[in-house]
């Protein structure tokens, strides 16, 4: 069986500066795969390339059997690849409901959309309470919930989450991580980029460690969590 997502020798550059230097990895249906690494390792660039916001210099991306290298972003989401971007990027002057509706922009099944909005409110009750408020009035953690809920509205085959815990309080971070665990339990395939390596690796089936544009170490979440070099570099242990 072929993987849901296959990335082969992907290279991405901003002008002359190469941010991703030939990485290869796969995500199987039902898995949670995490990319960890320091700032500037190329994790966000990788996700932005997978969702079509950036064009790679070389390499191939296959999603659900289709080559999607160079496909425009608005076609990629139609194939079932949703991206919750770093920094959340909710639409601040639209209401919470409108943000969720935009997540389902390409869907035509009105009743299904309404159903999924209610499901998002069940997952994140605070969003339901504030449905008519402009999304810009939400706290950082609430905005992260909205960004995740919005990405789920396209009913993706693969959900990409970029730094969902960034800038959140420990309580809110736990809440977000619990939600990702719930999504995993319900069978959602997730590609997770996180700075919080401990939390990400505890959750993930497999992980890859990125350093300056390359994958330097790969393994199961548990293996990486117990790897000595990972513990030193990313988990703050001597």
């Amino acid at each position: 069986m072929t993987a849901l997502l296959e990335v082969d020798n992907l290279r991405v550059a901003y002008g002359k500066i190469e941010a991703v230097k030939g990485i290869s990895f796969t995500v199987e249906a039902g898995e949670v795969v995490t990319l960890i690494g320091t700032n500037g390792a190329g994790k966000t660039t990788t996700l932005r390339t997978l969702s079509g916001l950036l064009t790679p210099t070389t390499g191939t991306i296959r999603f659900n059997g289709h080559p999607i290298t160079g496909t425009p972003a608005h076609h990629i989401v139609a194939l079932g690849l949703a991206h919750s971007p770093e920094g959340r990027h909710i639409f601040p002057r639209l209401t919470i409901t409108e943000n969720l509706q935009l997540g389902a922009f390409l869907r035509k099944d009105t009743t299904g959309i309404t159903h999924d909005i209610h499901r998002a409110y069940e997952l994140f009750p605070i969003l339901g309470e504030r449905a008519k408020q402009p999304a810009g009035t939400l706290s950082g953690g609430e905005q992260q919930m909205l960004a995740m809920g919005r990405a789920l509205m396209s009913r993706p085959k693969l959900l990409m989450l970029d730094e969902p815990s960034m800038g959140l309080s420990p309580i809110m971070m736990r809440k977000i991580m619990d939600t990702i665990a719930e999504l995993k339990a319900s069978g959602t395939t997730i590609l997770l980029v996180e700075q919080n390596a401990q939390a990400a690796l505890s959750l993930a089936d497999r992980g890859h460690v990125m350093e300056i544009g390359k994958i330097v170490l790969s393994g199961t979440g548990t293996d990486l969590l117990h790897d000595e070099s990972v513990r030193k570099a990313y988990l703050g242990e001597d």
């Binding site: 425009p72 989401v77 639409f91 396209s154």
Partner: peptide, 24 residues
């Protein structure tokens, strides 16, 4: 309208609008 909503989204955050499937 659906297109009008897409216009608001594009005005507020064009890259994220593309992630929603909007042809900006």
């Amino acid at each position: 309208s659906r297109t009008g909503r897409a216009m608001q989204a594009t005005a507020q955050d064009p890259d994220t609008a593309r992630l929603m499937g909007i042809n900006t």
